[in-house]
Structure formats: C-alpha cells, structure tokens
Design a protein around this nucleic acid. Structure first.
Lengths: 187, 187
DNA sequence: GTCTATATAATGATAGAC
DNA sequence: GTCTATCATTATATAGAC
C-alpha cells in the first residue's frame, strides 16, 4: 500500500473513532507509520486529508450498499435488508457522526462529502420505495420521500441513542419501529 | 447572576455550538467574563464544568417538554406537539450532538447525563403512547416502545440530516414520515 | 517522496497575590 | 472568590537535509 493510501486509511479510521476535531496529525502519522513530511507532501493539511478520508469511507459504504442490494426482491425486503446490515452501533456512522463537529460543518468541502453521502442514501431508499409502489406492493398514496427520510433519520438517530446508552438495543428498537411503519405502507 | 452560573451558561452555549472537544476553557472564560481562577475554584476542571452544563441543558429541555405538554389531549396530539416544537434544526440537539464526541462517551459522568436525558425522553413518548393505547385511541397490538424509540431516533437523526444539508427540510421530511407511521397505529 | 528538526500558537491546569 | 502569571504539553505547520 502506498504511503498516501496508508494516510487516507489511518485518517478514515481515526475520524470514525474520534471525529475530526479530536483527531490530530500526530495520531495519523503514528497510526499510518508515515512521517510529517509525507503528509504535507500528499495533502495541503489536515482538512485536505480528512476530505479524502471521508470520500474514501463514503465510497466504500455506497459500494457496499449497492453490492448487497438485490433489485429483484420486493421493495420492503430490500429496505429491511439495508436496516439489518447496520454494523458497529456503538461506533456510529462513519460519515453521519462527523456532521456534529463544528469544524466539519464550517468547511463546505468536508460538509459536502457528508451531505452527498446521506442524500444519496436517502435517494436510494426513495427509489426503492417508488419502485415498490409502482409494482403495486405499496399503497398508491404512500409518501415515499417522507418514509425514506424517516428511515435514514432512524438509522442516524439510532446510532446516537446506542452511543449514549453504550448498548445496541435502542437502535434496534428504533429500527423495529421503522419497519412497523414501512409495513403499514404495504397494500 | 453568580460567576458560577455565568460559567455554566457560557459552557452550555459553547457545548451546543462547538461540542465538547472543540470547546476550550479559554473560550468559556472569554464568553462568561470570568477569570481562570474562578473556573478552577468552582469546578475541578473542564469535564466537571461540562457535566454541570450538560445537566443544566437537560433540565431546561425536560422542564420545557413537561410545561408544553397537555395530558388531557389525545396521545397522538401530544406527540405531534412535541415533534412540532423542534427548534434550531441546524444547531442540533443540545445533548444528542455531544454523544458523537469520543471524550464525552469515554467519560461515564458526561455520557450518563446524555443517556439519562435521552432515555427520559424515550420513556415520556412511551408513556404517552401507552396512555393512548389504554384509552382506546391506538391499536391494542401497537408496539409503543418501538414507536417511541423510532420517534426519538427520527428527531436525533433529523438533526444530523439537517446539519449535513444546512437546511431544515430533511428533518421536516423525516418528522412527516414519523407522523404518518404514528397515524397508522391509530384504531 | 520521505525523513527529522523546529516554529508558533493554543490547550488544560497550577501558583500564588489580592 | 477572583485575578494574573506561568507551566508543561500538544496541535498544526514549515524548513530543509537526504
């Protein structure tokens, strides 16, 4: 693996564990094994490296979602599979947790990566539900955009509850509530 | 206002704006007008002061919820009123946003305040829905605990989506989806 | 491209006068 | 109880050798 890639992966891991503000260049160098100079050779600074790391994480998650998805299944099964694929509830969402950081939100480059990922996720759920509605699986008057936003919010909010409790149960309960809501949209 | 109260309020504001890790004692002193010595006289350090500030914010929000609530209304109206009372979607939840901070989660005192607030909120929604179910307003088989977890998660996750987009719309859409789900629980 | 040495500022906390 | 002065440490970045 190139030094550049090692820097990106170490940063992505640290952003997941500690967030942006609490991750220092010194930690990144220690974990990646690179020296000071390499980091400032490949990137303009901490923010530039974090942007690359966030994009790396978002790309991995988006690819994972598309790989696991089977478009031939009924819409509610596809969304159920997504909600069942949540991992590491105590660690939180690799992207969603970062938007609580003021420095991330104040930097349009960093915030933009997060917004693009979350918006893409919401759009994917909307598209799946729209396909299900078109196939006659869901009620014709179902508000698919609202349901999709609810699903993505439940996932992100579930991470918040799980971290506060240090227990996956609250997120699982919230997901159960979301699934009951989706079942109510079926014909 | 006492110097101690000024420190607590300034800290509560800064935690809301910047989170825990990114808030420094220097910022707290500048905003409160207190000197270094006063802070370390009244509190053992940054964590101790933050714990008091988080408790202050949680108490204010819990009091606000109970004051605005009218137990004589139908259950779904009471939950709808709560979901309609969300303010400052771009600023996030004064408590929920802090649990993304590794330093907060690693400190059981700080995390405990957050967990207690969020758990109390979830319990309030559960109690309201249980009362509605007992009054025959909701289906007898409604999973009120799951619905309550879903509602609180939608609020917290809605803040995440709103901050990423820098627009209240995603949170409003998620709340709309949650309300549709609650309506489906009515008899 | 990579490294070590260094610079400047900020962080969290302490000392001790008033 | 409040203040200023100061401390050791860390954060982010630059300089310049190899």
């Amino acid at each position: 693996m190139s030094t550049r890639d090692a820097l990106v992966e170490a940063t992505a891991d640290l952003l997941w564990e500690r967030g942006y503000s609490a991750t220092s260049p010194a930690m990144i160098l220690a974990r990646s094994g690179a020296g000071q100079g390499s980091m400032y050779h490949h990137f303009r600074g901490k923010a530039d490296l974090a942007r690359a790391a966030m994009q790396h994480a978002a790309d991995e998650m988006t690819t994972g979602l598309e790989t696991a998805d089977d478009p031939s299944l009924p819409a509610l099964e596809r969304v159920r599979a997504f909600l069942g694929s949540l991992r590491d509830p105590l660690r939180g969402c690799r992207i969603g947790r970062l938007v609580q950081d003021a420095e991330v939100v104040d930097d349009d480059d960093l915030r933009g990566v997060a917004d693009q990922y979350l918006h893409g996720l919401e759009q994917w759920v909307t598209d799946v539900l729209d396909a299900g509605r078109a196939a006659g699986e869901l009620r014709p008057d179902a508000d698919t955009a609202a349901a999709a936003a609810m699903v993505v919010a439940v996932v992100q909010g579930g991470f918040v509850l799980a971290r506060a409790r240090q227990d996956a149960a609250p997120q699982q309960a919230a997901v159960r509530g979301a699934l009951a809501a989706l079942d109510a949209l079926a014909v």
